[in-house]
């Protein structure tokens, strides 16, 4: 049972990771997969003084779409709320497939665009008869447009941090992590079920990377300029725009090998970030437009970012922007303790 729980947790981590960005990945890795004894496990404990909650929208903008202006969180959240879930024929078995169908859909869609999607669609239509082609092409185009709208609108997640505890909510899935107790709870709010992972009794799980990924490098020195201070969600933020070019020796995420001009805009508050600061090489931060690395600030270490958009190959048809924006930022108080508990009425997932 423990092994099955870990397996399911892992599936949830992977599927959510693609859509939620690195912050959720880091948080989940901290306890859904217990660190190896003696491993150089990342220090993922939230900032001890930060009892804070915020909502986050992660977006992938394709085909030259520009990132939205800052402080448009409310409008973007309303757009997400207005979209209906996409229908899909994603193969799956039993409840596990159904439980993560939406995540699989979004993950699949992200995997298909922007480079492979048209290619696969083209290869499929070439294989069909002429009569079938017209009808199917129309269906494909509609499907791709729907997927693009869905991805472009983004996904909304709700985070809360308190006393090293984390709560992450996305759709019907809520994950509560209490590192000091070695406990992780994964709730399905639609089915009212909960999986509990106790790292003290689970077998040690070690994550390894068996790929020889060549890290991105910089072509020339990036230039960062200060942007005028602004206001997001009623908070003063400090803006930065970095322009540079990354060089990829092999494909990374949505980017092929080769040089890629990048524009990265970040707005950061004076509030402490509940996640630890990161010290990434500049090239890796600028490669967020290909494959996001972190949601921590690249400009003001340790402070909370409210907006970051990284655009790769700007002003070209290949342009891709990966961005996140945050809103509903609020301090937590003692009355929010229930946030980090499993609500009554939830049964153990079989």
């Amino acid at each position: 049972m423990i092994a099955a729980n870990l397996k399911n947790a892992r599936a949830g981590v992977l599927s959510m990771a693609l859509a939620l960005g690195q912050q959720c990945v880091l948080c989940f890795q901290s306890s859904a997969q217990p660190p190896a004894s003696g491993a150089q496990a990342p220090d993922v404990a939230p900032h001890p003084d930060s009892a804070i909650a915020f909502d986050q929208i992660d977006r992938l903008l394709l085909y030259g779409q520009s990132p939205p202006p800052i402080d448009s969180f409310a409008a973007d959240a309303a757009t997400i709320a207005s979209l209906q879930a996409l229908k899909t024929d994603v193969p799956g078995k039993g409840s596990r497939g159904a439980r993560t169908a939406t995540n699989i859909l979004v993950s699949s869609a992200l995997n298909l665009v922007p480079i492979a999607g048209p290619l696969i669609a083209g290869a499929a239509s070439n294989a069909m008869g002429a009569a079938e082609q017209a009808a199917n092409r129309h269906a494909w185009e509609e499907h791709h447009a729907a997927v693009a709208r869905f991805i472009s609108a983004g996904t909304l997640s709700r985070f809360a941090f308190s006393n090293s505890w984390l709560r992450c909510e996305r759709g019907h899935e809520v994950t509560i992590i209490k590192p000091d107790q070695g406990l992780t709870f994964i709730l399905d709010t639609a089915k009212k079920t909960v999986q509990t992972i106790d790292v003290r009794t689970s077998p040690e799980t070690i994550e390894v990377d068996t790929t020889a990924t060549l890290p991105p490098s910089l072509a020339g020195k990036p230039v960062t300029e200060r942007l005028p201070d602004a206001t997001i969600a009623g908070l003063t933020v400090h803006g930065y725009r970095t322009i540079g070019t990354i060089e990829l020796k092999q494909s990374l995420g949505w980017c092929n090998a080769g040089p890629h001009p990048v524009i990265q805009v970040e707005y950061v508050t004076d509030l402490p970030d509940p996640q630890p600061a990161v010290d990434l090489p500049a090239a890796q931060g600028l490669a967020d437009g290909c494959s996001p690395s972190s949601a921590a600030s690249y400009q003001k270490a340790g402070l909370l970012v409210l907006y970051r958009a990284t655009t790769t190959d700007p002003d070209t048809p290949k342009s891709v922007s990966v961005m996140f924006e945050r809103g509903n930022i609020r301090r937590l108080n003692e009355g929010d303790a229930a946030f980090f508990s499993v609500p009554e009425g939830f049964s153990k997932e079989q």
Binding site: A11, E204, V208
Partner: peptide, 14 residues
Amino acid sequence: FWRVTSKADGAAYD
């Protein structure tokens, strides 16, 4: 005894 999970493909090895 431990479990290994592969970041690349999600495979798990006991």
